[in-house]
Amino acid sequence: MGKYLLVFCEIGDRGAVAPASLEVLGLARELSGPMKLEVAAAAPREISGEVAECGPSCIYIAPSSAPTGYFPEWYASFLGEAARLTEPEAVLFAHTPLGQDLAPRLAQKLGTGLVTDAAGIRAEGKKLLVTKAVYGGVALATYSLNSTPQIITLRSRLGKIPPKEPGRSTETVEVKLPEGGGKPHWELVNRIEEKSAEIKLEEAQVVVSGGRGLGGPEGFELLRELAGLIGAAVGASRPPCDSGWIPSSQQVGITGKVISPQVYIAVAISGASQHLSGMGDAKKIVAINKDPDANIFKTADYGAVGDCRQILPAMIETLEKIKSEL
């Protein structure tokens, strides 16, 4: 019988622990009580101090700093070793690009099963029941895993970031990589930044998204004007990203960002299930669409039917007026 829930913590954009990993750590703490388990963390050396302050019982650290470039074999080898040492009931990852790359590799290495992209999770004894969107968001499936460790990647915001306890002493174990685990296969030739000037979707409280019905990049200019006025990030459904009207980093949906802002304004978006499963948890949803039967209205709290090319300028004008009178 395993004693641990093992959480993989990755390095985020700013060199610190990725917030998504901290959320998983917080979630693991919540689950560990009823499961009668302890939380173990596995982390690259450079973030181990910070991870230790977030409450795991013990932390397994890599023998060296995380390699630069694309080196999943190194991570998989490190995690395989950490799993061998901890014999966990489950290994939890954030559903980040790295998590999605590593979880299947680890599952295969350990000969166990995996469920990715969990939108909900609860424990039943030592088993985890994992709910996720399937068929492009048309259905919600709940899975359990019959083999251990149960390997799961989790969407953001399922757990709360645990409070830091500076100076907390945590048992630290240094993991040795097995033979061959340190050789990269892929040489990083170049990294091309396609940075967008947009506000980060994941961090925004208000998001204004445009769909195919915006008609072109100029449509997004209007959206940006509205967004600027209300402090919103600009997102999109998939077609505008595919057509290059806006960078793909702004795509919302099952293959884009999964977000749950306070307010989501969907402009000229029909409301396909693949899109809805990326933003359906927003607190308030506002839909603007010329088709009164558009699916998006079924999920919206506020709706306006009409041509967005006329509705948006009027919205902007009114908001400017209200703002000037404040």
């Binding site: 499936a141 359990s144 709290d301």
Partner: peptide, 17 residues
């Protein structure tokens, strides 16, 4: 190893003003 224990439709319906 992966067992489906439940399948349901997502509840997304909201009342739209």
């Amino acid at each position: 190893s992966v067992e489906l224990t439940r399948l349901e439709a997502p509840k997304r319906e909201r009342h739209c003003q």
